[in-house]
Design a protein around this nucleic acid. Structure first.
Length: 427
RNA sequence: GCGGCUGUAGCUCAAUGGCAGAGCACUUGACUGUGGAUCAAGGUGUUGUGGGUUCGAGCCCCAUCAGCCGCCCCA
């Protein structure tokens, strides 16, 4: 075999053979459908950006450790985009005076992060981003969560399988204040909260105490993190859940004080969706409200809320739950066989006529034994096979065979289209 | 960047330091105008790569590359 001489694909990339491509398109289509149901507009940003764009606001780790950065021929440092939000902020800021607000935009495209590939994580991935800018309210936050929940519903995930957990940064800050955890320590404590599910309870306690918290602060923190009624102390969250109920997606959403999210720029509502059955322990999607992003890139202050979903984790999940539609190899339901060399072009003409009528038609590319051609039709998932042999040619007919039922009929050439339509209808 | 596991036929895997194998898949035929099922026949490999130990290495040792799983971080 030639395997020795094959140049391998770049580490952490995925190759989309037609079956994987169909899966990716399934996810894309459902994301598109959910976005459009709420009236969001599709948009995109450059895949290449300068490193300065991310240096301004993204986390240091994301820029320094996890970005693909390389000099272009002029010596400028170019970055393969690791996230979309900074580009969004710039594009909004550039046209801040002409856009119709609120802006409701969605996007689905490739991103790159230089990470160690592992389950649910690749270096090249596709991400669905949905954002609303120009409205700062819990009701707007609820709409974004509803878009996410609608997606989960559209792909067939039930609330028992996938749940969106919600928290609020301001609420948690108030709680931390009450415990007299200093603002400088909030970040570290937040990170600790993020990691809590992955650590043993005793070890986590130890870890938090090492951060400099006192024993009673730790106890207080644990009390907060175990209080699932805490949302009732937040006017924002009360309004949020009220709106979620009206939007018909409350089943998918639960308050959870343990949801923090590492990203610096979230200021209010934060949320993350997880596979509740627990096979993939990574977030399916995550998002929240960001108040300062536009100002940080040099625009006028403008609040936004949004979320992102990578294609990798949701792909694993959908596959596991059997929610990816069966793969049909050929997009053509009709195969025209080629009986022999003398009738080859007659078959091609027949195929051309059917295409002119709007059918997707695949031909066998050369004369071959019929068993071989039928086997090919079968492997390609074709529903109907046409035979134009000497008998048919002599009588001006075409044999139309329904591969699912193994029945066939010989019909006049002008009747072929109707015969195909009948067979496809009964399948 | 750190830790662990695994690399054998196209795929999934087996082989006590002693002749490198099985199932599936594939090709052909049974069947010269009809697919899936069945049966028969057939091909298969520098055992990831490079060194070392040994009379002898798929197996042991070292290095290297790749993949997977976890840490970090996050979609």
């Amino acid at each position: 075999m030639a395997s020795k001489t094959l140049i391998p694909a770049v580490k952490g990339t995925r190759e989309f053979y037609p079956e994987e491509m169909a899966q990716r398109n399934f996810i894309y289509e459902k994301a598109r459908q959910a976005s459009r149901l709420f009236g969001y507009q599709e948009w995109d940003a450059p895949f290449l950006e300068t490193i300065e764009l991310y240096a301004a606001k993204s986390g240091e780790e994301l820029v320094k450790e996890q970005s693909f950065v390389f000099p272009d021929r002029g010596g400028d440092l170019i970055t393969l985009r690791p996230e979309l939000t900074p580009s969004l902020a710039r594009m909004i800021a550039q046209k801040q005076n002409e856009l119709v607000f609120p802006v409701r935009w969605w996007s689905f495209g490739p991103f790159w992060r230089y990470e160690r590939p592992q389950r649910g994580r690749t270096r090249e991935f596709f991400q669905w981003n949905v954002d609303m800018l120009g409205v700062n309210s819990p009701e707007a936050d609820a709409e974004l969560i509803a878009v996410a929940a609608t997606f989960l519903k559209l792909v067939g995930l039930t609330p028992e399988q996938a749940t969106i957990f919600v928290n609020n940064r301001r609420l948690m800050d108030a709680q931390f204040d009450a415990l007299q955890i200093s603002p400088e320590k909030r970040m570290e404590v937040s990170n600790a909260v993020d990691r809590r599910a992955k650590m043993e309870a005793a070890k986590w306690d130890e870890y938090v105490l090492e951060l400099g918290l006192k024993r009673e602060q730790l106890d207080g923190l644990k009390q907060i993190l175990g209080n699932y009624d805490l949302w009732q102390q937040s006017e924002e969250l009360i309004r949020l859940f009220n709106a979620l109920e009206a939007l018909g997606v409350k089943d998918y959403v639960r308050f959870d004080p343990n949801i923090m999210r590492g990203l610096l720029y979230y200021t209010g509502t934060v949320f993350e969706a997880f596979d509740v059955s627990g096979s993939v322990r990574r977030a399916i999607l995550g998002g929240g409200r960001y108040d300062n992003l536009l100002r940080d890139v040099g625009g006028d202050p403008l609040s936004g809320v949004g979320f992102a979903m990578g294609d990798v984790v949701i792909g694993i999940l959908l596959k596991e739950k059997g929610l990816i539609p069966a793969f049909i190899p050929s997009p053509a339901p009709v195969l025209v066989t080629v009986f022999d060399a003398s009738l080859w072009m007659a078959s091609y003409s027949l195929a051309a006529e059917l295409r002119a009528e709007g059918w997707n038609v695949i031909t066998y590319p050369e004369p071959a034994k019929l068993p071989k051609q039928f086997k090919f039709a079968d492997r390609m998932g074709v529903k109907v096979a046409l035979v134009l042999g000497p008998e048919e040619a002599a009588s001006g007919k075409v044999t139309v065979k329904n591969l699912a039922t193994a029945t066939q009929e010989s019909v006049a050439r002008i009747e072929v289209s109707a015969a195909i339509r009948r067979m496809l209808a009964t399948n």
